[in-house]
Nucleic acid binder design. Structure first.
Lengths: 265, 265
DNA sequence: CGAGGTATTGATGGGCATCAAGAGATGTGG
DNA sequence: CCACATCTCTTGATGCCCATCAATACCTCG
């Protein structure tokens, strides 16, 4: 359902990336992105039937689902997919690229509350009040699948499998956020940065990308904001990890050298 | 649905509370708790039809819903309603009393991740993996309504209203947790404590209790854990607020004197 | 190439953790 | 009902982690 039509077999090399991540895995799905059809593209070779409903959805339900989700939208780096305060209509799944979610305090202070990588879902923050509580900003030129919420809800009433998927998706976000509360509330700077790197690594692995190296498109400031610390402390911590031989960081490209070492912080 | 059969008109005086909170509001619902029927009690005078589905549920759907939810469970202070790692089967709604949710880090460090007051729901942390990610511990002798999740899911497919309610409930938790991430990541000690007091105050108001004064059954340590600081800092901060005339705190009983003052921190 | 955003590294100070001691609250058993 | 043990809270003294300020180097893109 909210698994997008992305290409988990290939680590998309970043424009201007100093180092290229090698391909990893091989799920045998062909890419389907149409980078030139900018704002609305059909997911024609949509791999949905493989990716979205792995656990048995009846044959008659499938076409409805595909009809629902087969729209895509491109978002340029720095641009919002949606803004806090705007009406909630759609859920999204990241097809390619990555986005950050941010939330603002009453006084205007803004904080990064989440990072969404290719294959992950987006927009659940709008369900509670029909208005988005967060903004979603592209960290690089990205593409998302659009899932109209009202239509999805209707489908969920017809398909228990789909309902189950949606519930799990929400449940996962609840647990992920609680876990981030732990990070922010209990860990020191080193532990926070390590936890973050391990989290991204693991999520990459889950989507079929490399768990050992990746391009983190967030700035140090974004990371700091997400981790409740300053960009300087993030930078210092990464340098320290580098000196200790835990990671190999060159700007936004990060290679994890000693996974266990990071876990043992 | 997950609004329990509680009595929002009366502030239940705490045993051993030095000060009694006055009654507030008057929704005209009679209390229905049976404190002696310890472990399983029928919510016989269940006020569900008033509280749970305020936004139009069809007459034929109601009986099913009542049949589903009409079980209660008592939890003694300090006892778990459920523990992290145990199988997920039910959602809960707090009928009376209050509970904290806690989550443990890999190394065993435990942190309070939430506070649930009478009228609030509990257990969503189990949906994602069929296993609870958090533990729920009673802060005082409490009573909860039990809502079997599988049965609820089935009902949600028959009733769009119910489906909507469940989605909103999950969405609200997602936003609430994101908001707590802001608190932990961006605010200093004073601001955190103020934000917490204001949050509890507002939630009390929403449920028909007093927003100006309440018994916070958490210890200073629980509060500190929830707010990412030490119990000493919590205590100092409350004392400081007291000196400034912002609150009147006597142990666990707290009266908010200057709401605006707290907001303006 | 040059400008603006981004990252690194150093020096300094403050906010909050930590350690400590004592007062108060709570629950129990005689 | 009181005495005692235990938990909880308050307040003080000290030190450390990380924010802040600052300067420079580095990317990245027009």
């Amino acid at each position: 359902m909210l698994t997008p039509t992305t290409t988990p077999t290939v680590v998309r090399p970043a424009a201007h990336s100093p180092v290229r991540a090698p391909a990893a895995g091989s799920a045998g799905l062909s890419a389907s992105e149409a980078p030139n059809a900018r704002h609305v593209a059909r997911c024609s070779t949509c791999a949905m039937r493989h990716l979205c409903m792995p656990q048995g959805m009846s044959a008659e339900e499938l076409p409805k689902l595909e009809a629902l989700i087969c729209r895509a939208r491109a978002v340029r780096r720095g641009e919002p997919l949606y803004r806090a305060g705007t009406p909630f209509e759609n859920l999204y799944a990241v097809r390619s690229g990555s986005l950050k979610t941010t939330m603002a305090h009453r006084d205007g202070r803004e904080q990064v509350t989440g990072l969404r990588l290719a294959g992950e879902s987006l927009g659940l923050d709008g369900i509670s009040s029909d208005t988005h509580a967060c903004s979603a900003i592209a960290l690089e030129d990205s593409s998302v699948c659009i899932v109209p919420y009202e239509a999805l809800k209707r489908l969920c009433r017809e398909s228990g499998t789909l309902q189950e998927r949606l519930h799990k998706l929400m449940g996962e976000q609840i647990v992920r956020e609680a876990s981030q509360m732990l990070t922010l509330g209990s860990l020191n700077a080193d532990e926070r940065v390590a936890a973050f790197l391990l989290d991204v690594s693991e999520r990459n692995a889950q989507r079929g990308y490399s768990s050992a190296e990746f391009n983190l498109r967030m700035t140090r400031e974004d990371m700091g904001s997400y981790l409740g610390m300053t960009l300087e402390t993030v930078s210092r911590t990464l340098s320290k990890f580098q000196k200790r031989g835990l990671i190999d960081a060159r700007g936004k490209f990060i290679r994890i050298v000693d996974l266990e070492g990071l876990r043992d912080l």
